[in-house]
Nucleic acid binder design. Structure first.
Lengths: 145, 145
DNA sequence: ATAATTGCAAAGTCTTTGCAGTTTG
DNA sequence: CAAACTGCAAAGACTTTGCAATTAT
């Protein structure tokens, strides 16, 4: 809560550099793609496509490796919306995801909705909830019939 | 809440039969394996192994097909504890799962811990939470350092 | 120079599918 | 007998890995 992770392309690349990493065109493009899509839920494959379209050829494996490097750096996180590919986003996103298993709709819920559960788990089990790693699945109004 | 799904081998097989399905040795063995492991979190592969060890040869695909048939019947559900294979269990299990991403420990939490969240989501978004489909990941006391 | 990154192709894990042969009711 | 189930082998989706060639610093 006290530390805000880097949020601009340059800040992220600087953090990468600081950790001993190198800045390449592909890595910059990857970071730009992530920042340009903070409002979407993008998969590794989406990023591959975006980088290929606007910058240069990339191997999938390079993207996967860059993504895990950024994840180790603490800059991004991945999340599982449901079955299917993981999605990646900046680590500072502050909302939780509800995914409808009927139509696939994604509802974003404010983090404070989970505050009670988080402290309950903390208190009773000493369990620190990783609220983002899996979305919550269920059925939306339209799909529950 | 008013309907309790079948909980014995015979009840489950009867339900299967009623829906037009057929009862085979492998299917019976699969159901028995599921019932013999209500306290564990077993994957399709675990079931394949159990059936092969105690009953007969089975193809993986047969187990997967049987599991989805049972799932469509509403008798079982699958759940994702974390990355890795899905786990299967009877649909009537009434607890939620907390999985430590450090050591893999699984903590079972009573369903009522989620009651507040469930009604909140229902009220605010009309979203019916499928509490079981994904476990909640995080860090246990020992691993959070 | 040299350690980090990349591409490519191959492998890995989990799951699904097609199809011909077998079995259940 | 007809519909349902099975095995086998192949494919599919997503992700990881090995290794030699390239590139950033």
């Amino acid at each position: 809560m006290s530390h805000v992770p880097p949020a601009t392309v340059e800040e992220i690349l600087a953090a990468l550099r600081l950790s001993g990493g190198r800045i390449t065109t592909t890595r910059r493009a990857t970071v730009e793609t992530l920042l340009a899509n903070t409002d979407r839920h993008i998969s590794a494959d989406d990023i591959v496509a975006a980088v290929r379209a606007r910058y240069a050829e990339v191997a999938e494996s390079t993207i996967y490796r860059t993504l895990s490097t950024l994840e180790e750096l603490g800059v991004i996180t991945h999340m599982h919306l449901d079955h299917g590919p993981a999605t990646f986003h900046l680590a500072d996103r502050r909302h939780r995801h509800l995914v409808c298993r009927g139509c696939g709709a994604i509802i974003e819920a404010p983090a404070d909705l989970f505050a009670g559960l988080v402290s309950e788990l903390e208190g009773r089990y000493g369990f620190t909830l990783d609220e983002e790693h899996f979305a919550l699945t269920g059925l939306c109004v339209a799909c529950r019939g």
